[in-house]
Design a protein around this nucleic acid. Structure first.
Length: 406
DNA sequence: TCTGGGGTCCTAGGACCC
DNA sequence: TCTGGGGTCCTAGGACCC
C-alpha cells in the first residue's frame, strides 16, 4: 500500500485468482452421511436431545442448519423451531454433534491444503484460497483446479461444496452462493454489471440487517443501485470508513489478502437457560455459573498456551438487552482463581434488575504464554495497583469480596 | 412462537501522559 | 484565566459473520 490511490481511481486487481469454498448445508450433510435413511427428507440440525425427533410446535431453540429439502419450505438457519413446525410439519430435528462436524472440517481442509497452502480458515465450513500462483494459464483460469478440488473433497468426505472464483474475496464469496449446492461459478471483472449488480445489497458480506434497512430507506435495494450512489452520499449516511467501503464493494473492489494465520483475540463461553434466572432468588446459581465459566475459559486458554489481561462478563436479560462489564488484571494470566475473581468483580458491577436468560464470560487482550518466561519476572507497571488485588477490591455494595465463594 | 454459541471489527468517550 | 493536540489504554456497546 505504498502508493496512494484516489478513491475514484481504485480498480479491481484482475491479476489475482481468489476462490471461496463453502460446504453445502454442512452440518446437515454430515448427519446424512451417517443417517442415509434420512436422505430426501427435510431435516434441521438443532438441540442436544439424544435422538432424532419429529418437529413439534412446542419445541424450544433455533436451527443451526437446514438441508435443501427443508429449505424448499422456507426453513432457514437461525430459525426458531416453533416457526419450522409451522412451515414444515414433517421436518425432522437432528441433534447437534460439533465434534463430528469438526472432524469432517479438518478432513476437507486437509484435502484442500494438498492443493495449496494459501488457505484462509473462515470457520468450520468455509475457506478462501489464493490460487493466483497455481491456477494455470488456460482461458478459464482456475476452473479446472477448482473442479479438481471439489472432486477431491467429495472423494475424501462424501460431501459436496460450492466454489466461487474471481479476482477477490468479496466477489468470490458472492459467487460461491450463486449456484449452490455443488456449484462452481467464475466471475470476471467484466461480469459484475450483469451478474452482481442485480443482486440484493445484503448479498455483500458485511451488509447485515441494520445496514440493509438503512439502505432500503434510501431507496437502495440492489448492489447496482448502490453502485449508482455518489461517494459523498454514502459517507454522509454511513460514515467515512463504512461509506467508502460500501462504495468500493458495489464496484467489486476488494484488496484484502488471503490470510493463512491469525492470532486469536478472545475466548469466551456463554449459556442460554431454559428457565430465566431470577436476580435475587437464583443469585447463588448465577454466581456458580459465572465461576464455572471463568474457570473453564482460563483452562481453555492455558491448554492452548495463552494468557489474558482482561476478563469480562456478559448478561442477557429476558428483554434481550445485553450488558457487558470488563475487568483488566494486573498481569496477563490463565489462572482459574484470578479469572473467577475478575469475573465476579465484573458481575458485581452489573445491575441485575430483570430476569436473566444468558450468562457468559470472555477473556480478551490475549498473548502467548511463551512470551513471558520465568527467568525475568515483570516489574509492576502500574504503581497505583502495587498492592495485591488492588483492582479487585473496589466492588460495589454487593456481598462479594472479589470472589463469589469467599 | 420467539430468538444459540463463538468469534472479529469498529466506534466513542474518558483517563492519563507528554 | 484560558488555552492546545496527539497518543495510548480502558471500557461499553453494537454490527456482523459462521
Amino acid at each position: 500500500m505504498s502508493n496512494f490511490v484516489a478513491p475514484s481511481e481504485r480498480n479491481i486487481q484482475e491479476d489475482r485468482r481468489i476462490a471461496h469454498l463453502d460446504m453445502d448445508a454442512f452440518y446437515a450433510s454430515v448427519e446424512l452421511l451417517r443417517r442415509p435413511k434420512l436422505r430426501g427428507r427435510p431435516i434441521v440440525i438443532a438441540g442436544r436431545q439424544p435422538k432424532v425427533l419429529r418437529i413439534d410446535p412446542g419445541m424450544r431453540g433455533v436451527t443451526t442448519t437446514a438441508n435443501y429439502e427443508a429449505r424448499k419450505y422456507g426453513v432457514r438457519s437461525a430459525m426458531s423451531l416453533a416457526e419450522v413446525a409451522q412451515r414444515c410439519p414433517d421436518c425432522l430435528v437432528v441433534p447437534i454433534d460439533f465434534d463430528e462436524y469438526r472432524r469432517l472440517s479438518r478432513m476437507f481442509k486437509a484435502v484442500i491444503r494438498s492443493f495449496t497452502s494459501q488457505m484462509e480458515d473462515r470457520g468450520i465450513d468455509e475457506v478462501y484460497l489464493d490460487l493466483s500462483e497455481v491456477a494455470g494459464v488456460e482461458a478459464q483460469r482456475g476452473l479446472v483446479l477448482a473442479q479438481n478440488i471439489k472432486q477431491a473433497v467429495f472423494d475424501a468426505t462424501g460431501l459436496t461444496c460450492s466454489i466461487g472464483l474471481s479476482p477477490n474475496k468479496l466477489i468470490s464469496k458472492i459467487a460461491s452462493d450463486l449456484e449452490k449446492p455443488n456449484g462452481l461459478t467464475l466471475i470476471e471483472a467484466r461480469d459484475i454489471p450483469d451478474k452482481i449488480w442485480p443482486l440484493a445489497a445484503n448479498k455483500i458480506n458485511g451488509v447485515g440487517p441494520k445496514a440493509n434497512e438503512r439502505l432500503a430507506n434510501l431507496g437502495i435495494a440492489s448492489i447496482g443501485q448502490l453502485a449508482q450512489q455518489p461517494l459523498d452520499l454514502l459517507i454522509e449516511h454511513f460514515g467515512r470508513n463504512y461509506g467508502q467501503w460500501l462504495f468500493d464493494s458495489a464496484r467489486g473492489i476488494d484488496t484484502r489478502e488471503v490470510v493463512t494465520f491469525s492470532e486469536p483475540k478472545s475466548r469466551s463461553e456463554e449459556t442460554t437457560f431454559d428457565r430465566k434466572l431470577h436476580p435475587q432468588r437464583d443469585w447463588g446459581q448465577i454466581a456458580r455459573i459465572i465461576s464455572a465459566q471463568a474457570e473453564s475459559v482460563a483452562r481453555g486458554l492455558d491448554r492452548r498456551q495463552y494468557l489474558a489481561k482482561t476478563v469480562g462478563v456478559k448478561v442477557r436479560f429476558d428483554d434481550f438487552r445485553i450488558v457487558t462489564r470488563d475487568v483488566s488484571m494486573r498481569e496477563p494470566n490463565a489462572d482459574p482463581v484470578m479469572f473467577r475473581r475478575a469475573a465476579s468483580e465484573a458481575l458485581a458491577r452489573v445491575a441485575l434488575e430483570r430476569p436473566v436468560r444468558l450468562l457468559g464470560v470472555r477473556a480478551s487482550q490475549l498473548e502467548h504464554s511463551g512470551q513471558r518466561h520465568k527467568t525475568s519476572p515483570e516489574p509492576v507497571v502500574n504503581p497505583t495497583s502495587a498492592e495485591p488485588n488492588a483492582n479487585l477490591e473496589k466492588s460495589d455494595g454487593r456481598d462479594t469480596t472479589g470472589d463469589l465463594f469467599a
